[in-house]
């Protein structure tokens, strides 16, 4: 036994040529993942002439913050930033509430009609109305060109619901039973027991919802027509690919039609991505657990 353990330790400590290659390759892959970000940041901080003469590769050349000054001096960017923050906060709060409630209710044992309600929700994972019928419904209920059109139609993700229900089902049941005997109502059990115990999964699902709302541009593209209500991603898309998508014969390389300099564009990219990068490390430790909970077949 002791010998076996020793051998195992030996196996772990041994530096083989294979493991050296493995570590090197993984480092390389991580660098490839990071490089595009580095490139964008380098462009955003580079001087006008350095960008025009295509010298920027890894690091900023002729360091300047003028692109940021210009971007952040535009009222439209702040307006879009505000819209996106409102949609992300309200949308995430709504989505989390509905998903948690659904996951809690449908994880109760002995609830008559539980199966029917679950099937009712799961069915929509496989059968959907598609883009146009959904568009017509959103228009029909009067949400066209309103900020609510950006979160109400996508409020509950069935996948996130399954992940959360699987997690809640795995919680120890005795606590709830004890609370019930003490006369706690269903609502009290949810708020005082289930939610505190489910914080890791709530953080994970919250991150997924928030990222989706923050990154969404397509719903804004089809539902929002008033420029004052444009979200950050939609504005960014209009800045980056102006005239590309709608006008036939647009120049693929954007030469000539290019109004903004590349550094201005890349500074906008940075501004609209930084908020995600700020919350990411805080929530990162949770989401691996969350995805694993979802991978267990419910």
């Amino acid at each position: 036994m002791a010998k076996q353990k020793e051998e195992k330790l030996h196996k772990i400590r041994k530096v083989t040529p294979g493991s050296v290659i493995n570590y090197t390759l993984i480092t390389l892959i991580a660098l490839i993942c990071l490089y595009p970000f580095l490139n964008v940041v380098a462009y955003s901080f580079s001087g006008y002439n350095a960008v025009l003469s295509n010298k920027v590769t890894f690091f900023p050349i002729d360091f300047t913050v003028s692109a940021y000054k210009e971007i952040l001096g535009k009222a439209s960017i702040w307006l879009s930033m505000r819209t996106t923050i409102i949609v992300t906060l309200v949308g995430t709060a709504l989505s989390l509430t509905l998903t948690t409630v659904a996951a809690y209710v449908l994880s109760r044992p002995n609830l008559p009609g539980k199966r029917i309600m679950s099937t009712f929700m799961l069915f929509t994972m496989y059968v959907t109305g598609g883009m146009i019928p959904t568009f017509l419904v959103v228009k029909g209920v009067g949400l066209y060109d309103s900020l609510a059109s950006l979160f109400l139609p996508v409020a509950v993700s069935v996948y996130n619901f399954i992940v959360m229900r699987t997690f809640i089902m795995g919680l120890p049941f005795d606590l709830e039973e004890a609370a019930k005997i003490d006369g706690a109502s269903e609502m009290q059990i949810l708020i005082k027991i289930i939610i505190p115990l489910s914080l890791p999964i709530i953080a994970t699902i919250g991150l997924f919802y928030a990222v989706n709302y923050w990154n969404d541009y397509f719903n804004a593209l089809i539902y929002i027509i008033t420029p004052e209500k444009f979200t950050l991603q939609l504005r960014l898309r209009n800045l980056l690919f102006a005239g590309e998508l709608n006008s036939a014969g647009a120049n693929a390389e954007g030469i000539g039609t290019q109004v903004m300099t590349q550094s201005l564009k890349m500074a906008t990219v940075v501004v609209s991505t930084v908020p995600i990068l700020l919350v990411y490390p805080w929530l990162q430790k949770y989401f691996v657990k969350g995805v694993m909970a979802g991978s267990v077949k419910g």
Binding site: L98, V101, A102, V105, M117, F120, M121, T124, V127, T128, G129, G130, I132, P133, T134, L136, V137, V138, G140, V141, L152, P153, V154, A155, V156
Partner: peptide
């Protein structure tokens, strides 16, 4: 929750 599914999931399915 059910109201959400009726309005934004099933109504579009009906719209097919």
């Amino acid at each position: 929750v059910l109201a959400y599914f009726v309005v934004f999931r099933y109504a579009p399915i009906g719209g097919i």
